[in-house]
């Protein structure tokens, strides 16, 4: 059944554009199901959205097309990518069931929704005479949509916006933790706290690692002026991992050339000069 011919004749340019873009959209849609990495699937979805937007624009709905790109491609899919990147680069979807019994529910829902859609679509009537775009857009595409949205459909419009705001506020309430209510410890706060704390020992900051030692590395503790190793100078992460080179090895009295014999020989050498 050729819907396009029934509804009305389609211009050559539009037909060419349709037959180039539609297969791409279908391939991309199938690709979403079959590619392994989530980012690839997201990209396919993005390309479908852009192609849809082009169709809208070609059909005279310039506003709808552009908004489709801004909202879906620019915001929704960008957020989606953001989450995917947070999850990790190489993680592919795990097929392990986290919630028990979710699969039968999902399958039932999917079948139900598709039955609903099919029954709706099959009962849809496509009028012989398509409404004339020139008439619909006579006051301008944007103005026409604005008039409809704020007169005839203003109730639906407001309800949808209230729903969306409720969803956003609900998500914030669910994700909110008490911790974020504490006064955030800013750099300024911390630097003041260093001087107003119990001691001034850390006022100048923690000692850097590897300083005064023969090594210049993160996993080597700094030596304090008295020759003992400073535990503070090595990152706690490294300490927990056990990646720190033994501190006693670098203590001043363990170093060759610092014991008394060497010291006296050094003094002698000085005197010779």
């Amino acid at each position: 059944m050729n819907l396009a011919l029934e509804v009305g004749q389609v211009g050559t340019a539009e037909a060419v554009q349709f037959f180039i873009l539609a297969p791409i959209a279908v391939i991309a849609a199938l690709g979403i199901l079959f590619v392994k990495k989530a980012v690839h699937a997201a990209l396919m979805l993005v390309s479908i959205m852009i192609i849809l937007a082009i169709f809208y624009i070609a059909n005279g709905a310039a506003f709808l097309g552009v908004v489709q790109i801004i909202v879906y491609t620019g915001a929704v899919m960008m957020l989606f990518l953001f989450i995917l990147m947070l999850v990790g680069v190489d993680s592919s979807d795990s097929l392990k069931e986290n919630l028990k019994g979710i699969r039968p529910v999902a399958i039932t829902l999917a079948i139900g929704i598709s039955l609903l859609l099919i029954s709706l679509l099959s009962r849809a009537q496509i009028s012989e005479q398509a409404p004339d775009l020139a008439v619909l857009n006579s006051e301008g595409n944007v103005e026409g949509i604005a008039r409809l949205l704020f007169t005839e459909y203003v109730w639906a419009f407001e309800v949808v916006s209230a729903l969306l705001i409720t969803a956003a506020v609900g998500a914030m309430v669910l994700a909110h933790s008490e911790k974020s209510r504490e006064i955030s410890r800013t750099q300024r706060y911390k630097s003041v706290a260093r001087f107003r704390g119990d001691s001034l020992a850390t006022a100048a900051g923690l000692p850097g690692s590897g300083v005064y030692a023969r090594h210049n590395a993160l996993d080597v503790p700094a030596l304090l002026p008295d020759g003992s190793a400073s535990e503070l100078s090595v990152s706690k992460t490294l300490q927990a991992r056990g990646d720190v080179i033994d501190q006693s090895k670098f203590a001043l009295d363990q170093l060759p050339g610092v014991n008394e014999a060497d010291e006296s020989s050094a003094v002698e050498r000085e005197e010779e000069r």
């Binding site: 552009v66 620019g74 960008m78």
Partner: peptide, 18 residues
């Protein structure tokens, strides 16, 4: 020239960030 030209620019820049 589009009736939604400025929105078009916004749309295009949002794709560019991809």
């Amino acid at each position: 020239d589009l009736p939604v030209a400025v929105l078009y620019i916004l749309a295009v820049t949002s794709i560019g960030v991809y």
